[in-house]
Design a protein around this nucleic acid. Structure first.
Length: 110
DNA sequence: GCGCTGACTGAGG
DNA sequence: TCCTCAGCCAGCG
């Protein structure tokens, strides 16, 4: 697909991430179906300012090293679960677009 | 056409 | 639990 459409999909996906949830670069790349984590990171560096970039984290739950660590403040304010180590609790916070289509009535958390 | 760089990832020590 | 190594994909000069 065109680069423009790719960017469009990545940004649209990130905008759909609900407060208190996060996604990692690999998951986003998998949903979009093109390129890899690095490609997603590149798009974020250029267009990330228009979306809740702080909801995008590393595969292990650690936050993006950009923006002077401001991501943690945003996530905490949204009620995202953190582990004692300082990383996001991926088991509880990892979000997938399938949750919107597959379990619309279960929104509200475990 | 070539090489470098980067908001990554997974495995191993 | 934290640090390091090698691999992958695209954009840019």
């Amino acid at each position: 697909m065109d680069q423009e459409e790719y960017v469009e999909r990545v940004l649209a996906l990130i905008e759909r991430i609900p407060a208190g949830r996060v996604m990692n670069y690999g998951a986003i790349a998998a949903v979009v179906g093109v390129g890899g984590p690095r490609q997603v990171g590149r798009v974020m560096s250029q267009y990330g300012g228009s979306v809740p970039w702080w909801r995008v984290v590393h595969a292990d739950g650690s936050l993006a090293v950009c923006h002077d660590g401001g991501a943690r403040q945003h996530l905490v304010a949204e009620g995202t679960r953190f582990r004692p180590s300082g990383s996001v609790d991926m088991a509880a916070a990892l979000w997938s677009p399938e949750e919107l289509e597959g379990v619309p009535d279960s929104v509200g958390g475990p």
